[in-house]
Design a protein around this nucleic acid. Sequence first.
RNA 1: GUGGAUGUAGCUCAGCAGGUUAGAGCACCGGAUUGUGGUUCCGGGGGUCGAGGGUUCAAGUCCCUUCAUCCACCCCA
Length: 432
Amino acid sequence: MRPSAVKGTYDVLPDDQPRWHALLATTRRILGRAGVDEISTPVFEHSEVFEKSVGESADLVVQKEMYRFEDRGGRSLTLRPEFTAGVLRAFIEHGMHTWPAPVKLWSAGPAFRAENVQRGRFRQFHQVNCELVGGASALLDAEAIALLVDVLAGLGLRGVHVKVGSVGDPEDRQRYNAYLREALEPQAEALSEVSRERLRLNPLRVLDSKDAGDQALLAPLQRPLERLGGEARAHFDAVTAVLEAWGVPFEIDASIVRGLDYYRRTAFEVHHAGIGAQSALGGGGRYDGLIAQLGGPDVPGIGWAFGIERVFDALSGAGVAAAARERPLAYLVALDETAVAELAQLARALRSEHRIEHGYVARNPGKGLRDADRSGARLAVMRGSRERADGTFQVKDLRSGEQHTVPEDALAEHLRRSATGTTTDTDAALAG
RNA sequence: GUGGAUGUAGCUCAGCAGGUUAGAGCACCGGAUUGUGGUUCCGGGGGUCGAGGGUUCAAGUCCCUUCAUCCACCCCA
């Protein structure tokens, strides 16, 4: 048996690295201009950080999907299933509530959930996460949503659907659950099996049913958005008004639902057709009260995350070109044993300025040029007994086929001239 | 946890109603070309046919079991 990566994990091979770098560079640029700074937190935390954050209603299912383990000291640790809890832990730990508000933080990296895999769903997956902490204004909600849209647009993604709703305040949610139960329980027999189960455990999720019969039963009922309390309603109206004023395209989703307890008021999702059943690229919401729940000061906040793999899926489906791996400027070809050592040393010197590769063994010119060609190098620099006798190199342009005899002391300048005025594919992608 | 599809070379896949030495393209190695690459031509290496069991004179092909992958359901931070 050949070894294989753990189920739900995968390798990012060299050819795939440029698009990761490009994604992170674009994210950094766009969020940075909005005053969002990067923070890196550990991939694991004390288990209680995540347990406290998810609350009670979600614990049954959600905790089963956390990678939890004990270290040698008997501490219970958990691989992060999401970023928010860890970032807020850091916010509390470093007293960031004393920093100028709002504190804006983004992160990127792996997260872990013990779920069954399918398209767009992995056990180790990657997210870009953004938190705006320390503001209750609807302006902050709008900015969060706009930033998510801006980043995805900056990556070249089109066809993104932004859905904005509100889960209300905790009282609203309780009231709505009661309303749903009251309305649906009398006709529970008519509901699908799945929805009946949901009605029992988490009534809000009945709204997500894909069953046509269920939707017919739901049709006459009011959505959560229509039963918001006065303050939550005013907040929601303010958020949508700002988004409209800013020209951020969105649609109101009256039945948007969150699995976790900690969400308050604004909730939003970004979807894309053509990435399979898991059509959400990302989402987020307001979580006033969560920081206090984690043991910190009572500071409001809002955040979002998007799945990097899903964005790549959407991008490749849309035919957005991926950047290519960086190519060497020159590949050095040793035509005899003496040249092998000479070129290894030469490569070291030239690498202060360029990407230079060589083959570590002597080759005849045919093989050597083939090696050079496969490396993707623009130039092949050849050295053998003849060149050594003359104190020169043969430098061949692998695209034009032009070949020059270049004196030893002119080589560095020759390479420099070849390199200028051109950019690598990667540079071009990053600049874009 | 459930359902469907698929497991044959490094990769993408053929392989007929069971029948000799299991194929192709790409990739890799060598030669044409012992100091000139990419194209072309010729040749070559490489497979426990996912694994285990069964049926049969004979199994990549049929049956059972198991594992893996993909997609979907469930769930979704």
